[in-house]
């Protein structure tokens, strides 16, 4: 017998292996089913899938890739958090340190290009869902959840853009934050805002309008950095994770990967 095969048989026969994998080699229907059913990640899938739905030319694998990139971003993001402090004193220097002191380091690159990729894969996933009419009943609600996830993806990218604290970062965020000031009735430069006053006292001013809420101040500063950091690392990923769970669950409940009725 082949010694490798022998070793394999020995390993898969140990109590440790059997305690982890509760099925044999998935080369028969029973073990193929168990492989999917008894694995927490794989059980997101049904045991059997429409043949038309497993074709790459049908799904483009963009939804799956988006989720994969979300995981990549989570892992690289957690690693980056070990080396980054969101304060005016340290933020920029910590990024410099990552660049200058880590030989062959590509952690930040993976995180940044992964983020750009995720924006693209989300668009392509939506594009595929649109082109196959998969948002139609019974999947209307899940399409809506997906749209919110699209917004979250762009907000995650947007909040992450500020963190390196370089010129590129603050001026890009300035462009976005100025939009907050233009919110109707809620931004200091927005239409209708000046109507909201009691006597001569404006209810909405630069110290409490939408832009102030976004930046945690009248201008981009340390409070903004902390706010964007918490949003980027905790708040938005938390909401996204919740909605991803809903999204996946609804994919299954609505009949799995779409196909002709």
């Amino acid at each position: 017998m082949n010694p490798l095969k022998k070793l394999w048989n020995y390993v898969t026969d140990t109590q440790v292996w059997k305690s982890i994998f509760r099925h044999g080699t998935p080369d028969n229907p029973r073990d193929q089913s168990l492989a999917v059913l008894s694995n927490v990640a794989l059980h997101l899938h049904p045991v059997k899938t429409r043949k038309s739905g497993v074709r790459m030319s049908f799904t483009w694998c963009m939804g799956g890739l988006t989720f994969f990139i979300f995981l990549v971003e989570s892992v690289t993001g957690i690693l980056l958090m070990f080396y980054y402090r969101p304060t005016l004193e340290f933020a920029y220097n910590d990024i410099i340190a990552l660049r200058e002191h880590v030989p062959l380091g590509i952690l930040r690159e993976i995180h940044r290009w992964g983020a750009h990729s995720m924006v693209i894969t989300v668009w392509l996933h939506m594009f595929r869902v649109f082109m196959t009419g998969s948002y139609k009943p019974p999947r209307e609600f899940n399409w809506g959840v997906g749209v919110i996830l699209l917004v979250l993806t762009m907000l995650l990218s947007f909040t992450g853009y500020l963190l390196p604290w370089d010129q590129l970062a603050i001026w890009a965020i300035t462009v976005g934050a100025n939009m907050g000031a233009a919110t109707p009735f809620a931004g200091v430069e927005g239409p209708g805002t000046m109507l909201l006053k009691i006597g001569d006292i404006s209810l909405v001013h630069s110290g409490n309008d939408a832009k102030f809420g976004l930046l945690a101040g009248r201008f981009i500063g340390e409070a903004t950095l902390l706010r964007f950091y918490v949003l980027h690392c905790i708040a938005l990923p938390f909401v996204a994770a919740m909605l991803i769970a809903v999204h996946f669950w609804r994919v299954r409940k609505d009949g799995g990967i779409s196909g002709p009725l």
Binding site: P26, P29, Q32, S33, A35, V36, L42, H45, P46, V47, K48, T49, R50, K51, S52, G53, V54, R55, M56, F58, C61, G64, L65, F68, G259, P260
Partner: peptide, 24 residues
Amino acid sequence: LEKQESDKRVYTWPDLVYSELICM
């Protein structure tokens, strides 16, 4: 094209999980 195959079901392992793995 989809209709031709949509009534057939294939096992997720290996037909789907392998494509996903290759994509990743």
